[in-house]
Computed example of a mutant assay.
Amino acid sequence: MSVQRSGTTVPHPEPKRYRRSRTTAAGTLLAVLLPATALPASAAPTPAGDTEPPPRGSAYLGMGVLRHDGQDGLPVPTRAAQTEGVDVSSHQGNVDWSALWSSGVRWSYVKATEGTYYKNPYFAQQYNGSYTIGMVRGAYHFATPDTTSGTAQADYFVDNGGGWSRDGKTLPGALDIEWNPYGAACYGKTTSQMVTWIRDFLARYKARTGRNAVIYTSTSWWKQCTGNYSGFGANTPLWIARYSTTPGELPAGWEFQTMWQYTSSGPIVGDHNKFNGAYDRVVALANG
């Protein structure tokens, strides 16, 4: 693996998987289920406040949110017309999709890419496996606006698993734009520069696929790093991250969320989510 920076290529090793753990409000440590093998200390996540960043490529959906906003571990009350989903990355390795299906999960998002330097080595098993078991599934891209342009990253995403087809089982690609786990919270960009970067990504993704990408973010990051920009809500589905009993306040421009990531400690594996509607609405989003 290599990282492209300013026209040069520098070696970049495949990031190691590591256990993710966090403390709930009750003080209980919860760990995502991963193979029970000893992992080196260098592979562990960087605790909040540490200065050593994790290896490039190791980011996952909600990683920055968990570090910045925390995990309260509160149970989510059951509501009508919500459909359970899961999101996974290389940290989960080969996923037992049958177990997730049996638990009630009906849709999924799989990390495909990060920046223009990383592709999930487990993508095929995760993306195809969820489809084969019967789930509606999509791919997501972890944005690194400090490395390359939004246009370049949209192309890299589409070229490496982030495309779309009208088969009733493929969700539009998702842009994971959140707290930076590798450095400055807003990736060194002003609010106007960040809005431009996101706009460029969305425009290129739609030009390549014909679909509006989903935006995954947290309200706290959106306020700080885009100035709570309200211009994307009319056409872009929102996937909000908030580990609590409700989605809470949404970013400006959105009256409701399409999806809600409510915990980073799923009962089986991966982060768990609620689609704001019954299963037929999940299929409707897939069909465009």
Rank of each mutant, 00 (worst) to 15 (best):
T191H: 06
S90M: 15
V110Y: 01
H272I: 01
V76E: 07
T132M: 08
G210E: 13
Y122N: 13
L66T: 05
N160C: 08
R166D: 14
N287Q: 15
M1E: 09
W107A: 05
C186K: 03
T151N: 04
S103L: 09
V136Q: 06
M135V: 10
V76D: 09
Y216L: 07
M135A: 12
G227F: 05
G134P: 02
G231A: 07
E84M: 13
P251Q: 07
D280F: 10
H141D: 06
Y262Q: 03
D96E: 10
K206A: 03
D87N: 13
R208H: 00
T144V: 08
K16Q: 14
N235S: 15
Y122F: 15
Y118E: 05
P145V: 03
S42Y: 08
A234H: 06
S165L: 09
T246N: 12
E178Q: 10
G138D: 06
R166L: 13
Y18E: 07
A59M: 07
Y205I: 02
Q92D: 11
T245V: 14
A112S: 14
D69G: 02
K274I: 05
S149A: 06
T9K: 15
T263C: 05
A139K: 03
V283N: 00
T236R: 00
M1F: 13
S6V: 11
T170C: 08
G248T: 10
A139Q: 00
H91K: 10
G161Y: 00
K111R: 13
A154Q: 00
E114F: 10
W197L: 06
A43E: 08
A278S: 12
L171Q: 02
F256R: 15
R199F: 01
V283M: 03
W239Q: 03
T147Y: 10
G173K: 00
W107R: 04
T46E: 05
A99L: 12
E178M: 03
